[in-house]
């Protein structure tokens, strides 16, 4: 902690006022008073792998991402079983979905993922335009929410509600849970945008940004499965 805080406070010193620097120095001193013992932990967060390969973010973030995807895997399994119980019903109800909404949202998310990828690369090159790329990705994500809003309200206007039958129950629960993750993802992207300029490659801050970017890619990936599963799968 000590070393990184020191380098970061120097970094901020360049842009910020002297007062901020003094405050930071005070904070660091306070931290030293409260934790005086030589720290013997598991070591710093970002570590180089021996074989020279790089895990995006930090290894821990993958527990979260793979764990979260496994919940969706259970949900997809439950959906497939439910569909197997009433194939005719699901087939007929599926016809009522508007594939254009789904396709448009797929494109929006794919573009946003590409923008996030470019943004992380821009940080790696210390390109100051990185925040703009993340803001563009957020706009795509908001576009997804707007499309979803129109899609939901159209369905509800036609009387297609979760209570109608199993297909609409699954439709609203699956897309709703995905939307919840997407909204969390927008929060994550906002945090990334705010931290993009201060992140140095190899720092903890950069690892957190990479981890957040991976979360956004997961939201995108889940939609790529959800879209064909709900809108396209036939027979």
């Amino acid at each position: 902690m000590g070393e990184e805080q020191a380098t970061e406070s120097v970094g901020r010193n360049g842009v910020g006022s002297l007062g901020v620097a003094a405050e930071l120095a005070g904070e660091a001193a306070l931290a030293r008073i409260q934790k005086p013992e030589p720290v013997e932990g598991r070591g710093p967060v970002v570590r180089q792998r021996d074989d020279g390969k790089h895990v995006p973010g930090e290894p821990g973030v993958w527990i979260f991402i793979l764990g979260d995807m496994s919940i969706f895997a259970v949900l997809f399994g439950v959906y497939i079983v439910g569909r197997g119980d009433a194939p005719a019903l699901f087939e007929s109800q599926q016809q009522l979905l508007n594939q254009n909404f789904g396709a448009l949202n797929t494109i929006l998310l794919l573009v946003s993922s590409l923008l996030v990828y470019s943004g992380v690369n821009a940080i790696r090159k210390q390109d100051l335009r990185a925040p703009l790329l993340f803001i563009a990705a957020i706009v795509c994500g908001l576009g997804f929410v707007v499309v979803k809003y129109f899609e939901y309200s159209q369905k509800i206007d036609h009387g297609l509600t979760p209570a109608l039958n199993d297909f609409w129950m699954y439709y609203f629960v699956l897309t709703g849970l995905h939307l919840f993750h997407l909204l969390l993802g927008l929060g994550v992207l906002t945090l990334i945008t705010l931290n993009a300029r201060r992140a140095k490659p190899g720092s903890t801050r950069f690892a957190l940004i990479e981890g957040g970017a991976c979360f956004w890619h997961m939201v995108d990936f889940l939609w790529i499965i959800l879209f064909p599963l709900l809108y396209l799968v036939g027979e």
């Binding site: 932990g41 598991r42 710093p44 821990g60 527990i63 764990g67 919940i71 903890t204």
Partner: peptide, 22 residues
Amino acid sequence: QDTEQRVFPRWLGYFNIWTALA
């Protein structure tokens, strides 16, 4: 907060975020 991982390993933090969401 514990960037030196003195008390708990870092992955446990992500694990807790996961269960919170689960």
